[in-house]
Computed example of a mutant assay.
Amino acid sequence: MNHILIIDDDVHINDMLDNILTQAGYKVYHAYSGTEALLFLSNCKPDLILLDLMLPGLSGEEVLSQIVNIPVIVMSAKADVKDKVALLLNGAADYITKPFEIDELLARIIVQLRDTSKCNPVHTLNYADITLYLDTHEVQITNRNVKLTKTEFAILKLLMENPKQILTKTVILDRISEDTPDCMESSLRVHVSNLRKKLREVTGKDYIEAVWGIGFKMAES
Rank of each mutant, 00 (worst) to 15 (best):
D115N: 15
I110Y: 13
T142G: 00
R114C: 09
L106H: 12
I208Q: 01
K98I: 06
E185S: 12
R114M: 12
T131R: 06
S193M: 07
V146P: 08
D135S: 04
N162S: 14
I130F: 11
P163K: 08
L159C: 00
V192R: 02
I172N: 05
Q140E: 13
C119E: 14
S177N: 09
M184R: 14
R200Y: 09
T180V: 14
L106Y: 08
S186N: 10
D174P: 00
L188V: 01
D135F: 02
S177G: 02
E152V: 09
S186G: 08
N143M: 06
I166L: 07
K157G: 04
C119K: 13
R175L: 02
T203N: 10
H191P: 03
R108G: 00
D129F: 08
D179C: 04
L156V: 08
T151A: 14
F153A: 02
E104A: 01
T180P: 05
T170S: 08
E185W: 00
Q140H: 13
R200S: 12
K198H: 06
D135E: 09
Q165W: 08
P163E: 02
N194L: 14
K169H: 14
Q112Y: 02
I208M: 04
L199D: 02
I208K: 03
T203G: 05
T116P: 01
H191K: 11
L113P: 00
K198G: 07
L167I: 12
R189S: 14
N162W: 10
N194W: 06
I110D: 14
T136W: 09
V192M: 09
R144Q: 08
Q112I: 01
Y95H: 07
D179M: 11
C183T: 12
K197M: 06
Q140M: 11
T149Q: 01
Y127N: 01
K150D: 09
K150I: 10
D174M: 01
K169L: 11
S117G: 07
V190T: 07
V122C: 00
V171C: 10
R175Q: 14
Q112A: 11
K150Y: 03
V202G: 02
L173Y: 07
L159F: 00
V190R: 07
F153S: 05
R108C: 06
I155L: 11
K147D: 11
S187E: 07
S186T: 15
S187C: 01
Q140T: 12
E201V: 04
K198N: 05
H137R: 15
Q165D: 14
V146W: 11
Y133K: 06
N162L: 09
D129M: 08
T149W: 00
T170N: 05
E178W: 02
H137Q: 15
D135G: 03
R175I: 00
I130H: 05
T131M: 07
S177T: 08
Q140P: 01
K205A: 03
L158N: 01
G204D: 11
E185H: 06
P99Y: 15
I208N: 03
D206L: 11
E152H: 12
I155G: 03
N120L: 11
